Amino acid sequence: MNTLALFDLDHTLLPIDSDYEWGQFLVRHGVVDAVDYQRRNDAFFAQYQAGTLNPVEYLEFALGTLAGFAPATLQRLQADYMAEVIRPAIKPAATALLQQHHDAGDLVAIITATNAFITAPIAQALGIEHLIAAQPELDAQGHPTGRLAGTPTQGEGKVTHMHAWLDGLGRPFDGFERSYFYSDSHNDIPLLSVVSHPVATNPSAKLAQHATALGWPLLHLFND
């Protein structure tokens, strides 16, 4: 296992943004104030696309919503969200790419700015053991407090969290012969610039321009 294969999640392995769609799901099911939540969710999403998002501000907005639900309600909503939104969005092209790396014996992980409450079931559904994601702070009963534990897994933060995760495994980054990172977003240029094999996957216009200038391969997994 001398190859590391890292994957962003939203618009990379999934053709949707799981964080944004979670908010839309809550609005559709009438469990949050539709007008206020929709307005704030749309504003944060626009900031993310523009590269101006304050990750802590957004994460604590999202995690604060989780804190407002009883544990049993959260579990039900999470299961319904997976069935209604996520599983239909898992495409054969993405699972085939993951399988190629698994079959090669690579160390595979998702590294995403989206919080672990949303992404842990998605990683499991995709057959990926390792997940690096924003961690919600939990109270003594294991319920989200509405705050972020640690630092965001976004931008340069992905590089920091990757190194910490690998060091925790006893597999420092420098020990890998090859390292891949698949991402759609210009926000991920810091980590794309660190690995030996960056792959601009379903890239945004800004990332596609950057990747083309540097000779990075462009990969299109989805038609939409």
Rank of each mutant, 00 (worst) to 15 (best):
V159H: 01
F69K: 03
A200Q: 09
I128H: 10
A125G: 10
P88N: 13
G155V: 04
P190S: 09
A83G: 06
N115C: 02
G175W: 00
H101D: 01
N202S: 06
L74F: 07
H130V: 11
D80I: 05
L97D: 03
H130G: 06
A93T: 12
P136I: 03
E156L: 13
T65A: 06
D139R: 05
F69G: 06
F176N: 05
G157C: 12
A134Y: 01
L191F: 01
T160G: 06
R171G: 11
Y182N: 07
T95F: 03
S179D: 08
G155W: 08
Q154A: 15
G157M: 12
I86K: 04
L98K: 01
Q141H: 11
S196M: 08
Q154S: 14
F173C: 07
N115E: 10
R178N: 14
G170N: 09
P121M: 06
I122P: 12
T160E: 15
L191P: 02
I90W: 03
Q135R: 14
I90S: 04
V199Y: 02
D167G: 04
T65V: 10
Q135N: 03
P172S: 05
H197E: 15
H101M: 02
R76I: 09
A133D: 06
L66S: 00
A83Q: 12
D188P: 12
Q100D: 12
T201F: 00
L66I: 00
N115I: 02
A133P: 08
E129T: 14
D103R: 11
A79F: 02
L107W: 03
H197P: 04
N187V: 11
H161G: 07
R87V: 15
P203Y: 01
E177T: 15
G146H: 01
T201Q: 08
H143Q: 13
L74M: 14
T95R: 03
I90L: 12
R76M: 10
Q154F: 15
P172L: 10
Q78W: 04
T119D: 08
G146T: 01
P144W: 13
I128K: 11
D139L: 09
P71S: 07
G155F: 08
Q154W: 15
D188V: 04
G146N: 01
T119N: 08
I189T: 07
A104G: 04
A140G: 14
G127C: 10
A140F: 15
F173S: 02
A83H: 06
H161E: 15
F69P: 05
T145H: 03
D188T: 07
V85P: 01
R171D: 05
A164V: 10
T112Y: 14
P88G: 12
L74D: 05
G175A: 14
A116W: 02
L138M: 12
V199P: 06
L66P: 00
H101G: 02
A140C: 08
D103P: 14
H143D: 05
G68W: 04
A96H: 12
L148K: 02
L148N: 06
Y182M: 07
L97W: 08
A70W: 00
P144F: 13
A109H: 14
G127Q: 11
T160S: 13
E137C: 02
R87P: 08
S196F: 07
